[in-house]
């Protein structure tokens, strides 16, 4: 419609999806049926970040390392992800959805599944 105006000034609308483009840009590993286990990896919790089971994160490739982010903050760093997981993220525009599956506070480790 335009630029430089507040949302309320425009007639309401819902942003559409081009689902075919999303599917095309998502690696097979993230879309095929095999369970989550193959797509779950351990990540070190960064600093004082607090993670809980079920938290939704964004996992991105940062200088060759997979980093989990919440908003703009880095919250976890994947220590030794399977090569196919790294490749799948790279093949998915360098980004994946992460879900915290388990948290081990004493070890400072979280298990995060990717899709």
């Amino acid at each position: 419609m335009g630029a430089e105006f507040i949302e309320k000034a425009a007639p309401s609308f819902k942003k559409a999806w081009d689902r075919a483009r999303v599917k095309l840009a998502t690696a097979d590993l993230f879309t095929r049926v095999p369970d989550c286990a193959a797509r779950t990896a351990e990540a070190d919790i960064i600093g004082n970040a607090r993670l809980s089971t079920g938290d939704q994160l964004t996992v991105e490739n940062k200088n060759g390392t997979l980093i989990a982010r919440r908003g703009m903050s880095d919250v976890a760093r994947f220590t030794n992800p399977a090569p196919e997981l790294v490749l799948a993220v790279a093949a998915s525009c360098g980004i994946a959805k992460g879900t915290v599956q388990d948290v081990h506070p004493i070890a400072g480790v979280a298990e995060i599944s990717l899709c």
Binding site: W17, D18, R21, V22, A25, T26, Q56, T58, V59, R69, R70, G71, M72, S92, C93, G94, I95, A96, K97
Partner: peptide, 15 residues
């Protein structure tokens, strides 16, 4: 970036 669908929106346009 706070939205759970952020990754899909990013993929939708290829970055």
């Amino acid at each position: 970036r706070n939205h759970p669908d952020f990754a899909d929106r990013y993929r939708e346009i290829g970055g």
